[in-house]
Amino acid sequence: MQVQDIIERKLAGRFDLQHLEVINESSGHNVAPGSETHFKVVLVASDFQGQRLLARHRQVNEALSAELAGGVHALAVHTYTEGEWRDRFGEAPLSPPCLGGKASEQPKTGDQEAR
C-alpha cells in the first residue's frame, strides 16, 4: 500500500472527519521522482472543536507517528472545525517552497519537517 493511502486510512480511523485532503508534495522537493516524503494534510473534523492548534497537531502527529519516524520527512498540517473551514471558503494555506535541502541524505530527520 502506498504511504499516501496509509496516511488517509489512519487519519480517517482516528478523526470524525467532514473533509480530508492528503496531498503528496514530494515533487516540489529535492527527492527522486515518485517519492512519498513530503505530505500536506488538511483535516476538517468535529474533534477539533474547542481545541487549541497545538493539541490538534499533536493528535495528527500521534496518528502518523510511525510514518513520521519512517520515510515521511515533512508534514504540513492544517486543522479546522466545520465552522472554521466554512469561514475560509474551503481553502487551506499553501506550503512554503523547498530551499533545496536534500531529504534523502537525512533519514529520520525532517522538516516540519520531521526530525
Binding site: L54, H57, N61, L68, H78, Q112, E113, A114, R115
Partner: peptide
C-alpha cells in the same frame, strides 16, 4: 523531538512553552 513530544522542525518556544511549528505560527 522526544523531549517536546513534537516530531518536526521548526519549533518555536515562547516563555518556556512550545507554541508550535510553521503551520501554527503562520496561522
Amino acid at each position: 523531538p522526544q523531549y517536546a513530544n513534537w516530531p518536526t522542525f521548526p519549533q518555536l518556544y515562547v516563555s518556556g512553552e512550545l507554541v508550535g511549528g510553521c503551520d501554527i505560527i503562520t496561522e
